[in-house]
């Protein structure tokens, strides 16, 4: 298995990239400008593409180069482009009704990272993997997941919800690249395309929301209760 046969250089490279992706998610937490969110998301996706490519190199999985290229192309370029176009079309520059200030949300985010680390450490002990890169990968995967959920909870704009979901998916992708690089490539390809369709579906629905419901904020969507 790859995680057992990594040299020190590869380990530090993977750690650096994984932590970079995690830091980028904090950039998203700290800003209320939707454009910044999209740029941070694009950068995060490129980081994950770099992880895929370097794992392909160190682990001798040539198919991961294709995955890396597609990740950079779709997640890093095309998806951010679609979301940016949506931001422009809806003419929403920033998140107006955040539940918490950026500083408070970052503190909650930090707490979530600590929680993720604790869960991953426990898993690492159970699997006899302490001090392994796997613990870091699990930490990043769970943290991105929880931070994505946090973004969806704290913000009410529809676009922020899409971005939160994308951060969650990025977290899963990051973790799966390091933990299970041998997973059938077909599955990863299909997941990339699945993500694309779902974002397009979101885009269409957001426009319907604007024209037919008159709002794109979940605070305005309160007709259906009970």
């Amino acid at each position: 298995m790859l995680i057992f046969h990594l040299g020190p250089l590869a380990t530090s490279l993977f750690s650096l990239l994984a932590i970079l992706a995690l830091v980028l998610s904090f950039v998203m937490l700290a800003s209320h400008w939707l454009k910044n969110h999209v740029y941070a998301f694009a950068a995060e996706s490129w980081t994950i593409a770099a992880i895929s490519a370097s794992i392909g190199y160190y682990g001798h999985y040539p198919e991961l180069y294709i995955i890396a290229a597609l990740t950079a192309l779709f997640r890093g370029t095309f998806l951010p482009y679609l979301v940016l176009r949506l931001v422009k079309r809806l003419d929403i520059q920033r998140e107006f009704t955040p539940l918490l200030k950026p500083s408070s949300s970052m503190i909650i985010g930090a707490a979530l990272v600590i929680f993720s680390y604790e869960v991953s450490r426990q898993l690492g002990v159970a699997l006899h993997l302490t001090d392994n890169i796997a613990v870091l990968a699990l930490t990043c995967m769970f943290s991105l997941k929880l931070i994505g959920f946090l973004m969806m909870i704290l913000r009410s704009e529809a676009i922020s919800h899409i971005l939160g979901l994308l951060v969650i998916e990025n977290g899963i992708f990051l973790g799966s690249q390091i933990l299970v690089p041998g997973m059938p490539a077909l599955l990863e390809l299909v997941i990339i395309f699945d993500l694309l369709t779902i974002v397009m579906a979101f885009g269409m629905l957001v426009r319907f929301l604007q024209t037919h419901a008159g709002t794109t904020s979940s605070r305005g969507l309160q007709k259906l209760v009970g």
């Binding site: 969806m152 319907f208 929301l209």
Partner: peptide, 26 residues
Amino acid sequence: AECIEAAWKYLIVVSAGLALALLGII
């Protein structure tokens, strides 16, 4: 308006839930 609101909530909530299931599968 109600239909679109329901469709939006459906898609967001279920996609977020299914993301957890994908993590479980991995």
